[in-house]
């Protein structure tokens, strides 16, 4: 329904930086997830899109129209909040109706639209209840219904699932994506949960300290990280980042040797390898380490090895079992190694 462009967006409170130099072009019907640790500026960026914060610098455009001076209530966006923000004194029916009344939707259409939204979020039988009489998941669905009911230009969702338990979160994730696809509404979604980002997003925007680290599809973010922050933030367990030296195509760190790398580099680097690209081996090992932890999860086993002062995470076979303290050998998948500048953390390509 709408294209959202942010150009040169900055937010400052006195000397405190909230967001610096954010440029992003969100396409019509696109699902974009802002991902980052708390305090990285992702929520502030979303609140600027909603009109709840004013950018210090830069321009926000929706469908080409500059929105900076336009009040939140006149921007046609619907927001879903972490704490649900349902109006406690109104029934669920009245809650869903509220945006229709505020935006002067003809009263004759209200009932039909409300029931449609309630149906979509499976809330029909709870319409007469007050929010306090609903469970967390139901409240979240009610908040979603209130956003859906008026078919806005864009959905803005601020950590909508973080108050729910793991099982419910997974179910709601599927529901949110389904509704977004069905209504074809541009959606900006803020989260610190990488699984939510990976599963929901058409594109992920990774932020840290108010600045964008990388923008890309989930595949690009996972398989082609731009720096050590992105590499370490995505994936569970996260990518192993090993500090060492590279010279003549050979990487060395304490207990670790990797050859066959590009031979045109030398000096201090960080080697990145994902736990699933490490394999327990008998020969041709890249590293030998002491077994520090073995954690079976059912479908696979997390193995933690200690080598020198580094800890290496390995995803091993589900039947893998070993005593602590014994030596184990690991080989890396050479096609799946990443090199980063040791100082700046930038990817060396």
């Amino acid at each position: 329904m709408a294209r959202i462009e942010l150009s040169g967006i900055q937010k400052r409170w006195g000397n405190v930086w909230g967001v610096r130099d954010v440029d992003i072009d969100i396409g019509d019907e696109e699902f974009v997830v802002f991902l980052g640790p708390s305090g990285c500026g992702k929520t502030t960026t979303m609140r600027m899109i909603a009109g709840l914060e004013e950018p210090t610098e830069g321009e926000i455009r929706m469908d080409g129209e500059v929105m900076n001076e336009i009040d939140a209530r006149d921007r046609d966006v619907a927001m879903v909040f972490q704490g649900y923000a349902l109006y406690p004194n109104m029934t669920i029916y009245e809650n869903i109706r509220f945006p229709l009344r505020m935006r002067d939707v003809p009263a004759g259409d209200h009932d039909r639209l409300i029931r449609q939204a309630a149906d979509m979020t499976e809330l029909t039988e709870y319409l007469d209840r007050k929010p306090s009489a609903l469970s967390g998941g139901q409240r979240q669905r009610a908040a979603l219904a209130r956003a859906v009911v008026r078919q806005p230009q864009a959905f803005l969702m601020d950590e909508p699932l973080s108050n729910l338990d793991a099982k419910l979160r997974q179910a709601m994730r599927v529901q949110i994506k389904h509704i977004q696809r069905e209504l074809k509404i541009t959606t900006v979604y803020v989260t610190h949960d990488q699984i939510e980002a990976m599963t929901l997003a058409d594109r992920i925007v990774i932020m840290q300290s108010g600045a964008i680290q990388q923008i890309g599809t989930p595949d690009e973010i996972y398989n082609d990280p731009a720096n050590t922050f992105v590499a370490g933030f995505i994936g569970a367990p996260p990518m192993n980042l090993i500090k060492g030296q590279v010279d003549g195509g050979i990487f060395t760190a304490s207990g670790i040797t990797v050859d066959g790398l590009r031979s045109d580099m030398s000096g201090a680097v960080t080697l990145g390898v994902r736990p699933e690209d490490c394999a327990v081996t008998q020969s041709d090992a890249n590293l030998t380490g002491e077994v520090f932890g073995v954690e079976p999860t059912g479908d696979l086993t997390y193995l933690t090895l200690k080598t020198g002062d580094a800890m290496i995470e390995v995803k091993a076979d589900r039947s893998y079992r070993r005593e602590l303290g014994v030596d184990e050998q690991i080989a890396f998948d050479r096609e799946r190694l990443f090199l980063f500048d040791a100082k700046t953390g930038t990817r060396l390509r």
């Binding site: 009109g51 921007r75 509220f98």
Partner: peptide, 28 residues
Amino acid sequence: PKELEDAARTDGASDMRILWEIIIPAVL
């Protein structure tokens, strides 16, 4: 919670309506 007012604002309510329809009932 501040979120309640933010929600009402994005839902299209003016300051007076937020006061009248959201805040006053909540602090009754």
